[in-house]
Amino acid sequence: MSEIAWGLASDKTAIVMAVALIIMTVLSAGPLHPIDNFINNAPRPYWDQIREFLIYWPDTVASRFVALPVLGVTALQLAYWHRSWRPIILSAVGVFSMLSLVASMKLLFARSHPRTEDPAFFADSGVSFPSGHGANAILIYGLVLFLIVRYQAARPHIVRRLGYCIVGIAVLQAVVSVYLRFHWFTDLLTGMVAGGLILALTIRLDQMIPQGRTFTWWPWYGRNPWNGADRAPEAAGRD
């Protein structure tokens, strides 16, 4: 366990993302309030015409009700193809870690909702900071892309397009949430950084799990389901 903790803590990308998360939290607590207020109070053209459409369609793209099924189908398909629990384990660990981090920060900082027009932390009631949708856009869809790249499930030009799609989803989610006054601008930026931090840690965890380790857990390939005897040990390299 200590080796895993040290390996995760020493990952350079995770360190950068952790520092960025701390900086964004400090800036969101006060220095960036003028920007939050300016964006929150800006005019909303076509509010009556498109508000309902934005709530029921674009705003749901990065919701867990949409993103998690996409990740689940991807992980299950790759797990079946490669006879490995690794895609499922990585997906579950990444999502659980992200939800834990975001929920803890929401409860700790208790930021008021944009409708109150007060972006202060430690309000009587409020769980605006950071944005769970922002974290979903980076972590969940980022895991989908990572698994596709790791198992070479798509050609390079398709991978690039998927990467552009993730950037587009993140930008769309930020614009729609700000327009609808569901989140402060810094809520969304900090949520994306939090999602990026957990994504970096999940990728690092995958690098630390030895190849073939999760293969022996697969019930139909690592062992014979009838007598428990090992089967095709050389196939463990597929993991």
Rank of each mutant, 00 (worst) to 15 (best):
G163Y: 06
A75N: 03
L27P: 01
Y46L: 14
G30I: 05
A236M: 11
A200D: 01
V102I: 07
A67F: 06
R86H: 05
D239E: 10
V127P: 00
I138F: 01
W57I: 15
S63M: 01
A137T: 09
R160I: 12
D187W: 08
F121N: 02
D59K: 00
F182L: 02
L145W: 09
I4V: 15
M208L: 15
T25W: 15
I158Y: 13
G142Q: 04
V95I: 12
T60Q: 15
A135S: 14
G72N: 02
P233K: 00
Q173R: 00
G191L: 05
M192N: 03
I39T: 09
R83D: 07
I39H: 04
I88Y: 04
A20Y: 06
G195F: 03
E52G: 06
A123I: 07
Y141H: 07
W85Q: 04
I89H: 03
D239N: 06
P156I: 07
A200I: 08
R44S: 12
G195C: 00
L108V: 07
W220I: 11
Y80E: 12
P233Y: 05
P114D: 05
W47S: 12
C165V: 12
Y80G: 09
T25Q: 03
D59W: 04
G142P: 07
Q49R: 03
I22K: 00
P34C: 07
P219Y: 11
N227G: 14
P233S: 09
Q207N: 12
L143Q: 09
W218N: 10
I209P: 03
V127N: 15
M105D: 07
H133Y: 01
F38S: 13
V102C: 09
R44E: 11
A5S: 11
M98T: 13
L54N: 13
I35F: 11
G126N: 04
G228Q: 07
P45R: 09
S104A: 12
L68M: 06
H82N: 13
L78A: 13
P58F: 01
I23Q: 10
V66R: 10
L27M: 15
P233D: 04
P219M: 11
R204H: 13
V175Q: 01
T25P: 12
L108N: 09
G195N: 04
I198T: 11
G168M: 05
N37W: 06
